[in-house]
Design a protein around this nucleic acid. Structure first.
Lengths: 342, 342
DNA sequence: CTGAAAGCGCTTACAG
DNA sequence: CTGAAAGCGCTTACAG
C-alpha cells in the first residue's frame, strides 16, 4: 500500500520481464501475445501501478512539459493566453509550467534556468529586455522557443503578437469619427522599448498624420503605473487639454478610471476614453467602455501549436512573425453627447 | 555547444571523479580540498554545465515541485492565491505546476494522476466533490496534501479557508444597519454542497435570525452562471421584492451587474448590493461597490507554508482547519439615499 | 513473441 | 580528501 509500485513489481506479478511491461506501457502490443498482454494488464490494475514519469523522462530525454514565462501575470491578457496554451498542451499530452517574471529580467533569467534544468521540451515567453544573450544561445542550439506579444531586437524567432499599429488605428479613427480632436495616448513606461507600447504609439502617430492632424508630443505619455496620477495631472493641466484618451492596456485603464473618478471627470462627456484590451467590466461600467480587443484565445492557441510543432519536428525553418487582428468593441465611453456615432 | 554537458564531462575536465563533482554541486565542500574545489568550479563554468534536475529527482525521489489544482481559475481569488503560493515556493526552491480543473471532477482526477506520475512532492487543491476515494487513498499513505477554500465531507486534512459565516454576517449586519430589510443572497449552484456557498448561506440565515428577521427561502438562490438572468428575473418578479442583494462571489457579481445594468435598476437606490470577494473595479464602479474581502495573499502564503512543512517533516499530525477573517470594504453600493451610513 | 543488458544523469553510502 | 560502484525506474536496441 505504501511503497510505490515499479515496473519490476508488475513484471514479477505478471511473470514476465520488465521489458515486456514497458512494451505494454508504451502500447507496443505487436510485441506481445494476447495472453501476456492480459496478464500484464491485470498485474497493473491489481497493484494500482502508476508509471514514474521522471524515470521515463530521464531515459527518453523528453519531459512532455513546456515552460511558459510571462512578463506580467497581472494583465488579463496573460491569464487568457495561458488558458488557451494549456488547452492545446493538454490535448497533446503536454504539461505546462507557468512562471511570472514580474517584469524583472533577473527573475526571468532564473526561470529560464530552472525550466531548462527541469528539461522542459520548449519555451513560450513574453520576453523582457535584458536576457538577449540567453535567448540567443538557446536559439543557436535550435532549442524550441516561441515569443509572444513582444519582439526582441536582434533576435530572430517565431513570434505571435497583435497588429498593434492597427489597434491604435482603430482607436484613433473611431475617436475622430466621434468628434474628438485632441487625442492623447497613455501607456506604461517606454524606456525598455517594449513592442506593444512602441507600436501602439507609432500607430497612433501615423493615423493622426494620415488624418492631417499634428502630433503633439505632450499628448504621448509613457510612465510607471505608480506615477500615473502625476502624469495624468500634468496632462489635464495642459493649456490645451486632450478631449480623448487612449489607454495602452488594462492596467493603465484602472489608473485612468481611478483618476477620472477622483477628479469628477465624466467619461464620454468631459473626456472620450478607449482602451486597448477588453476588460470584464467593460459592458457594465458607466458609461460602458469602448475597447480594442485582442483575440487572446487564438493567439494562445497559435503559440502553443507552433511550439509543439517545433518540438516534434526539429528541422530548422525560417522564423515567422504572426500578427493577429484586433477588433473594436464600440460602447459609450467614446460617445460625445450630441454627436452622432457611426 | 550542442550536446548537453553532464557531470561526467565536468569530472573529466576537472580530472576528478563524478562523485566529487556531485559533492560540489550539493555544496558538501567539507568533502573536498580547496584546490579540487576550484578545479571543479572552473570546469563547470567553462563547460557552462547545468545540472539535470530530472536525473537528480529520480535518484533523490523528490522533485522539489508541488502541484496546485484549482477548481476554477476564473475566480480572481484563484489567481491571487496562486501568486502567493508561488512566492512562498520560490523562496524555498520549489516549483509549482498549476492546474485548472474547470469545476470538472474528471479533469481534476486526471490532473491528480498526471501530477503524481510527475512525482510532485505534494498537492494543494481546491477540491471538487467526486474524487473522495482518490484523496482518501493519498491521505492514508500520508502523502502531503492541503486543501484550500473547501472542506470535503469525510476527509480529514489540513485546510485553509475563509470564515464564510463571518463573511455573511458582516454583509447582512452592514445592510441592516444601512436600512435595508429584505435581503436576498445569490450564489452559484448549490447542488454539490460547495463549502463557501453553503457556509455563506448559513451565515446569512443565522445573522438574519439573530436580528429577529424571518428567513424567506425565495430570497436564497443558488444557480448556474448561465441561468442567472432567469433567476434574477424571478427574484425581481416576487410580490415582495428584495431591497438588497448579497453576491456570493466575483463571478456572480458580474451577472448581477449585467442584469441591473440592462434592466435599469439603480444600485444603492433601487437595490443595495454587497459582494463577497473584492474586485479590481470596486472603487471605480458607479456607485463604488461595498465588498467583503478575503485575505487572499495570507491564505496562499499559509497553505503553501503548511504544505512545505508537511513535505519536510512527514510526521503525522492531527489535521487542522485554518479559518481566515474576512473584512468589509464599505463603499456606496450599500448606501440608501437619505439613510445615514455607519 | 520475450528477456537480458546497457544506459539515461545523477546521488550516496562505503572503502581507502 | 577522493573515487568505484550500485542504484533510482524507466526504455530500447538486440539476441534468441
Amino acid at each position: 500500500m505504501s511503497r510505490k509500485m515499479t515496473i519490476a513489481d508488475v513484471a514479477e506479478k505478471a511473470e514476465v520481464s520488465k521489458s515486456t511491461v514497458s512494451q505494454f506501457l508504451n502500447e507496443r502490443f505487436e510485441y506481445m501475445g494476447e495472453e501476456t498482454r492480459t496478464r500484464v494488464q491485470n498485474a497493473i490494475s491489481e497493484l494500482e501501478y502508476q508509471p514514474n514519469v521522471v524515470a521515463r523522462s530521464l531515459k527518453k530525454k523528453s519531459t512532455s512539459t513546456i515552460g511558459v514565462i510571462v512578463a506580467n501575470i497581472l494583465h488579463a491578457y496573460s491569464t487568457q493566453v495561458i488558458r488557451a496554451i494549456e488547452n492545446v498542451c493538454n490535448d497533446n499530452g503536454f504539461s505546462t509550467i507557468i512562471c511570472n517574471a514580474d517584469d524583472n529580467p533577473e527573475k526571468e533569467k532564473k526561470y529560464i534556468e530552472t525550466l531548462l534544468a527541469k528539461q522542459v521540451d520548449g519555451l513560450i515567453v513574453v520576453p523582457i529586455s535584458g536576457n538577449l544573450g540567453t535567448y540567443d544561445k538557446l536559439l543557436k542550439q535550435n532549442y524550441p522557443i516561441v515569443f509572444l506579444d513582444r519582439l526582441v531586437d536582434g533576435l530572430n524567432t517565431d513570434t505571435v503578437l497583435l497588429d498593434n499599429e492597427r489597434a491604435s488605428e482603430l482607436a484613433v479613427s473611431h475617436l475622430l469619427k466621434n468628434g474628438y480632436k485632441d487625442i492623447a495616448i497613455v501607456t506604461t513606461s517606454l524606456v525598455d522599448n517594449v513592442t506593444p507600447r512602441v507600436e501602439r504609439i507609432n500607430g497612433y502617430k501615423s493615423t493622426l498624420k494620415a488624418n492631417g492632424i499634428t502630433v503633439r508630443p505632450e499628448f504621448i505619455r509613457g510612465m510607471e503605473l505608480n506615477s500615473f496620477n502625476q502624469g495624468l495631472d500634468a496632462l489635464f493641466s495642459l493649456d490645451k487639454k486632450p478631449d480623448a484618451i487612449i489607454s495602452g492596456n488594462d492596467l493603465t485603464l484602472m489608473e485612468i478610471l481611478k483618476y477620472t473618478f477622483e477628479n469628477d471627470i465624466e467619461i464620454g462627456k468631459d473626456i472620450g476614453l478607449i482602451t486597448i484590451d477588453e476588460v470584464s467590466f467593460g459592458p457594465i461600467h458607466s458609461p460602458p467602455l469602448t475597447t480594442i480587443a485582442q483575440p487572446t484565445f487564438e493567439m494562445g492557441k497559435e503559440v502553443a501549436t507552433i511550439l509543439l510543432k517545433k518540438i516534434k519536428d526539429k528541422k530548422i525553418k525560417d522564423p515567422v512573425i504572426h500578427r493577429h487582428e484586433p477588433s473594436i468593441i464600440i460602447r459609450n465611453s467614446t460617445k460625445k453627447e450630441g454627436v452622432s456615432s457611426e
